[in-house]
Write a protein that binds this DNA or RNA. Structure first.
Lengths: 147, 147
DNA sequence: TATTGTTATACTCTATAACTATA
DNA sequence: TATAGTTATAGAGTATAACAATA
């Protein structure tokens, strides 16, 4: 007889949950929320996006991002700059924002390493690779769907 | 220069989100919720657990599981049987519950296959393997912590 | 006194719809 | 008219604390 197939979500959900905890704690330690960190990370990696695009990249809502941006802008971690189309705001991270984002990120990566530690190195690398590849593929098919 | 390391959560979150959608739709189609399906799946795979243990296995709350169990029991998909310790209820899936659970599960596995399709077969297998291995490891360290 | 299940309550997170200003 | 951003509101999801029955 064959081993019964297990649901993938049952395996991934606890991992994601643990990762959320890692990010939340790292962000909180620097006085921001997990989502605020995520926003800074996206803006840093992909400059020139407007609010809606950043929200979409994160799987976040265009309305929920607003109060976060208010906080980040008030703390001079990020700027809203009117674009050529004056309805939209181009988001730009500040020097202080970059520094804070990197501190949080370093902390997160330490937490990730600790979380993945029980996994054999081979499995660890393949998990990270596969996750990124799949996320990229999902983004691909997503942008195909909205065309 | 090296490629900047990306956050693992940023890659896994969309995948988990898509998987949740798959499970929710499959369960809804059979008239139950995602959590109710998850409960049936755990009870089917590991008979003899009580309510609290099932909730813990799922990362669910002991109080939130109650209304779900009420529904499942009312529909004769599951039974609460007083244990030797008469405070606790041993959960047992019924024949009808098993049939319904398997239908939902088959649907979920189809959805998973579709979701993982864009991934090269090699990556697909390693993702599933690594996810299960890590989930098992987390469960391990978790039960060590509560001893 | 501690634990299992239960109930009630409050809180956070998320989704929906209406409004403004630009286009 | 359509879109980006904003605001307000309602709903789902989640966490916390108190209670009853049993150990």
């Amino acid at each position: 007889m064959s081993t019964r197939r297990r649901d993938l979500l049952a395996a991934l959900a606890p991992v994601t949950k643990a990762l959320r905890k890692v990010e939340t704690e790292a962000a909180t330690q620097e006085g921001i929320t997990m989502w605020q960190y995520a926003i800074l990370a996206v803006v840093a990696q992909t400059p020139g996006l407007n609010q809606g695009e950043v929200a979409h990249t994160l799987g976040y809502s265009p309305n929920r991002i607003i109060s976060d941006l208010d906080v980040l802008e008030q703390r001079d971690l990020l700027k809203r700059i009117p674009g050529a189309d004056r309805r939209s705001n181009i988001l730009t991270i500040t020097a202080a924002g970059t520094r804070l984002m990197r501190r949080v990120q370093a902390d997160i990566h330490r937490g990730e390493d600790q979380l993945l530690a029980p996994l054999p190195v081979r499995h660890r690398r393949s998990l990270v690779e596969a996750a990124h590849a799949l996320a990229d593929a999902l983004r691909e098919s997503d942008s195909r769907a909205s065309s």
